[in-house]
Amino acid sequence: MNRRPVMLTALAALSLALVGCSSNGSGNATPEPTTEPAAQETTEPAGETTSPSGELVPVTVGALPISETAPLWAAVSAGIFEEHGFDVTIQPIQGGAQAMPALLNGEVDFMVGQPFGAMRAILQGLDVKIIANYAESYATGDDINAVVSAPGSNITKPAELAGKRVAVNSLGAAGDLTIMAAVAQDGGDPATIEFVEVAFPDAQAQLEANNIDAAWVPEPFVSMIVGAGGAKVVYPYQATIPGLPTLVVQTTGDRYQHEPALVSEFVAALAEAFSWAEQNDDLVRQSLVDEMSLPEPAAQGLPLPHFTTEIDRDVLQSLADLAIEHGFFDEAPDLDALVAE
């Protein structure tokens, strides 16, 4: 019995020491521009990507395994990025916050994540830069995410969500923020909404079990729930900030500053990938079948967002303003520092 505490503390001390080492050794999560292993790989051809030797620059892109990633998968296998001198690896990530350390230490070069998360990150002093738009919701018509209610529910408009239990995939993000704003806009009291976290794939079952009154879900879940008799209550993005980006491309401020050629070439490649994807919708949808194992008919009918690299600063500004208005942020994020010119 006497030896165990000693062993344990020795172990704990060792692990602490290791943590200390790794944070000092590769201190690139700090803004200071020290030598980075990832930087070395990419600096030599960064001057011009069409290097005479024809060598490709290896680039790792962190992206969520969701349907929005389809044009990226398709364009990579079609060789669009190779034409721009990139050898792209798409690294599936769990979420912006989980992947942020990988972005900061250079394991991931670019990350496709939510703009709200990027604002959170820069508010906490992390060195992140939005270099391009990626996917945005629709300002008019059918949007790509919606608050839906269960079959037989009497919730028909946003104001009626007040006092109800509403599911979002993650609290303190753009979902609950825009829902609160939409409810307030419609004359309801957003403070009375009880938000709970339910993963998107679980939302339909929870709605039908009456555990929740409404759920905020993206496609394909909107179509699935409405198809099963549920009702669309509101498109929270469209109702509050039309055309709000769902995903943006992020990198570190350090990379943006020191490798501008690489960054702008990557954005150019992405822009071409998106226009290629528009012409090759069938290949994009095939990648949904290949990469996400979606059944063929579902992949054919799935509504996709609008893909573009063009950043709309005003829309991001509205998002930040809304976050302050509803108490999500204490202070305004510095959009000049966050968003690339």
Binding site: T9, G20, S23, A29, T30
Partner: peptide, 19 residues
């Protein structure tokens, strides 16, 4: 106390948000 001291030494002067 020793562990907290080691922790303080390891993180001394760092701006790293994660540690």
């Amino acid at each position: 106390i020793l562990l907290v001291l080691a922790w303080a030494l390891a993180t001394q002067g760092t701006q790293n948000l994660y540690f």
